[in-house]
Design a protein around this nucleic acid. Structure first.
Lengths: 187, 187
DNA sequence: GTCTATAGCTAGATAGAC
DNA sequence: GTCTATCTAGCTATAGAC
């Protein structure tokens, strides 16, 4: 077997950057191949199902990033809630590159991507809310308040990413992340 | 001169619906022509500059909708601030069809659209913040607090539209709109 | 003002050499 | 596993009839 020019892991990361900034329709196989220093045909060897298969694979990677770096940490009942929050917040900052990178969910939520990946994206959002709700309850908030804070965290992060992306300035994202952190710690 | 099959106004509205749901790259001239019951070539008669010219025209219409139905109303110093808020909020609900429709800004903010229309979209966001800040100050909030509420209104609306679109449920949008209204009226 | 026809290109996808 | 070459379908865009 001939060696890979680029590892699956690195290729996925490179393609994630293309997809989150250009969306499904805006990312051509040409673009995605170039990002991995490959030719189009090589992508079909790795992803026999074509573009949809390829993007699904990137979305799966993104999903597991969220699960590992955010949701699992927030729900790790054995650790102190405050530590969990701070750890998850740090990882969220990384995931969105301090506010300069888009959310893949948003990039794949235009009509085309919505039809292809809607269920998984919806589930990820649900897990986000569930994880933050668990954290809120562990920090002593009542269920209703915990649920509200959880939804608000998702909405504010999404909105701040949209705005930061539009104005080409990560400040809205950074401010919102701090606000979310405070909303859980100020009691 | 042969009569138009469809008015400029109605055609623009139809194309807005395509563009806000599919984005720039996801909306083909074929799609846009069909939405107005026209052929592709007819669009080139109306928009000689091609796709970019056409989308620019839709964005201009969207911009003036925001200016007329939201920003001007919020800043109409002669009327009572509470009336202005309620009127603008009602128009925002209409503009986003109670949460079932996307924001065109978001749809055009992926890489392609960002490069083509970024300046105008950025300016619209700035006007949103300025208008809500003016309202906040007129309602008696201090400048800093008014500015914060204004930014928050934009971020929450954008985030709620993303979420409502993903989960196919307008509830997040409706809740956020009510929260924003309350944040200005509860004092 | 709208249409048919078509140019020229790029998209996603496949076949087969190395 | 990666490549060159190629297919077909779709894209943006243009020319010219009515």
């Amino acid at each position: 077997m001939r060696p890979q020019k680029i590892t699956e892991e690195l290729l996925t990361q490179r393609m994630l950057e293309i997809l989150r900034s250009r969306g499904y329709d805006g990312s051509s196989l040409q673009d995605l191949a170039v990002a991995g220093d490959l030719k189009k045909a090589s992508l079909y060897h790795r992803y026999p199902g074509g573009k949809q298969n390829l993007v699904q694979s990137v979305l799966d990677h993104y999903t597991s990033l969220l699960e590992e770096k955010v949701f699992k940490i927030l729900m790790a009942k054995k650790k102190k809630p405050k530590k969990r929050l701070n750890s998850a917040i740090g990882n969220i900052m990384d995931l969105y590159q301090q506010g300069s990178a888009n959310c893949l969910h948003r990039a794949l939520s235009m009509e085309t991507g919505k039809n292809l990946f809607g269920d998984q994206i919806r589930q990820n959002c649900q897990h986000w809310i569930d994880a933050f709700e668990t954290l809120g309850k562990d920090l002593g908030f009542k269920k209703k308040k915990a649920r509200h804070l959880a939804k608000e965290s998702l909405i504010k992060i999404q909105g701040a990413l949209v705005l930061s992306n539009i104005v080409n300035d990560a400040t809205p994202f950074k401010e919102v992340v701090e606000e979310i952190q405070s909303s859980y710690l100020d009691k």
